[in-house]
Structures are given as C-alpha cells and as structure tokens.
Design a protein around this nucleic acid. Sequence first.
DNA 1: CGAAGATAGGTTGTCTGACAAACGATAGGC
DNA 2: GCCTATCGTTTGTCAGACAACCTATCTTCG
Lengths: 174, 174
Amino acid sequence: MSVTDPCELPADRKRGSNFGWSLGMVLRRWHERVEELLKDLPHGSRGYHILAVVVHEEVPTQGALAARLAIDRSVLTYVIDDLANAGLIERRPDPQDRRARRVVATERGRQTLAEAERRVAHAEDHVLGGLPEEQRRVFRDLAARAAEAIHAAAPATDPCVAVQSVLPPADQAS
Amino acid sequence: MSVTDPCELPADRKRGSNFGWSLGMVLRRWHERVEELLKDLPHGSRGYHILAVVVHEEVPTQGALAARLAIDRSVLTYVIDDLANAGLIERRPDPQDRRARRVVATERGRQTLAEAERRVAHAEDHVLGGLPEEQRRVFRDLAARAAEAIHAAAPATDPCVAVQSVLPPADQAS
DNA sequence: CGAAGATAGGTTGTCTGACAAACGATAGGC
DNA sequence: GCCTATCGTTTGTCAGACAACCTATCTTCG
C-alpha cells in the first residue's frame, strides 16, 4: 500500500481527532476535578481507586490489589498506610500467610467511598458535559470495557508490529 | 434535573467501572504502544501531536500551537527544536511580528506524519482490540468530541461544586 | 520620538509521580 | 535444616509537569 496522499485524511483525522490526545485531555480534566473533589481523601484519586477496590471486591492480598489496579506495589505501601491512618481501611495480618496482609474496609471507609463515588459520578458527568446524556453512558461503558480487555491481556508489549523508523531515509527532504 | 439516588449505583459501578481508572488504563497502553512505534520521532507521541497540528491545521504562532494542544509553552520550545533538527518542520520568523515564529511543516515532515499516522491508527486498533470494530469507531469519536468540548471550555476549574470533606465527621468510625 | 506596559518565545529550577533495585521476613520444597 | 521464591517495604533514580524569570519586540500614549 503506497502512501496515499497524506493530505487526504478525510476530515475525520483532522481537528481533535487524535485519539491519544483526546484521551489525555479527558483524563486530565477528570483528574483535575476529582483531585479537587477528593482533596482530603488521603491520596486523592489514587486513594479513591484503591478504596473502591477494597470495598467492592474481594481482593486477597496487597499484591493482588496492585495487580488488579495495575499499579506498582511500592505505591500501595504508603497509600494504604495513609488510608489506614485515616481509619478507612485496616491492614490485617493474614492468618494463613504471615507475609501477606489482608486489606479490609472499615465502616467509615465504606461510607466515605459512597460519598466519594457520588461526588465523582457527578464530576464525571460534568467532565463529559460536552456529550449528551446517552453518549456519556456509552462512552463510560466503552472505556470500561476497553480497559478491562487491556488489563486482561496484560503483557503490554508484544512485538506484533515491526519497529522501524518513521522517518523517510532522507531522500527528498524539503 | 436532580441527581438520581447516588447510592443506587447498580453493579454497573463495580468491577472496571471506574471511569478514571479505565481512561488511565487505555491511555497508558496507547502511550506505551505509540511511544514504541514512534521512538525515532523526536519526542515520541509529543512530537507526533505537534507535528500533526502543524501539518493539518493552520496555526499562526507557537503560542497558538500550545493553546491548541493545551500544553506548556516551555515544552514546545525544545520539542520544536528537535523536530526542526530532524528536518520535519521549520521555524520561520513571522514577517509581521518579529517576536513570533511561524511553524511550518516540511515535505519530509508531511511524509513522516503520514507514515506515523498510519502506524498509530494501527496501534490504536490494537489497543482497542477488546472492542468490536464498530465500537472502536464510536469510542474514538466520543473521545474526540468530549475532548473537543473540554478544550473549548478551557477554564478547567469552576467552583460549581462546593468542596467539603468526603470523610464523615468521625461519628461512627469502625 | 520615547517611555511604559503587554506579549512572544526561551531558559531555568523545583517538584511530583513512576519505576527499578535492594532488603528483611516468611513460606514451601528438598 | 538449607535453599529458593514470594510478600511487603524502603530507597534511589529518572523523566515530565509546571512556575518563575529573562530578553526581544510590539503597542500605546504622552
């Protein structure tokens, strides 16, 4: 497939149609808003995500939690510390394996999460204010499913694409 | 339109249904892939975005470019430096205003972008591999429109939400 | 004309968050 | 009882984001 006229990208590729940029834009705004909203939750959106998983899901250990959220274990350490200090979760020794810690939510944690989720949901609607109600729902749903799929196929890098220079070999530089 | 009962989140709010987390997940993977793909384009995805705008849109000055992409001017400086060194764009003095620089793409830049866009499009399909064809299209479209709307309403922080603690007042801590 | 303020671009320094590496404690296999 | 793997934690390094400052130029107005 020879290079079709590069300018021919049918106005679908033009303004705003850079997927990566768009995602970044939406995520940045989401982050701003949520961070603002949850500024007294120990680590803002980070703490929120962790708390959410702890409350909603049965996650055995800290390591599993890290895997579930696809974040580094070393981050978990201090976020959990602070969430525990705030009385939102507890870190209990696992009776089966004394290396592991089970992380469970306190009642206060559950309440806090409920409140946080309410606010975040509201903020999200605001962030997606540019889309009509129905499409917001669709967007969130698609994002969730795409993320789920990505997370499931974790390997991150498979060499299915041969990596060679994007730059033309200096043949007809302007 | 009052907020429908916030606690009613019906198992739609559960696993994977954290919008922010999902976006982050998708974006991270996008970034990994693209950065891999464009590793010899001066600043990877950054350079890609900038090059794309320079090629596809009529952007008067460097400052306008920064505004268009919602990035810091100080970033533009060195990215443009390197894109120019690679012969992909040129920084020309604006005859009307000698403070300003007009940034224009070279032919080589156009070719490179075309190739890059092809690869990125391919990578994006791969990243969204968890969604069927049609939904990928929808997702990209919604993302673009949401981002566009956000970018249009730039102010970033309007105090429409009263910010008070998410934490309950220590009444019934567990 | 010439001084004052505004604006374009560039430079520098600081700060945060991501990530790798190393460590102590414990579990499981031999 | 040793050896290796695993869990959680700590530490250090690095890149990217962002603010503050600087210079050159334009604009306005006396």
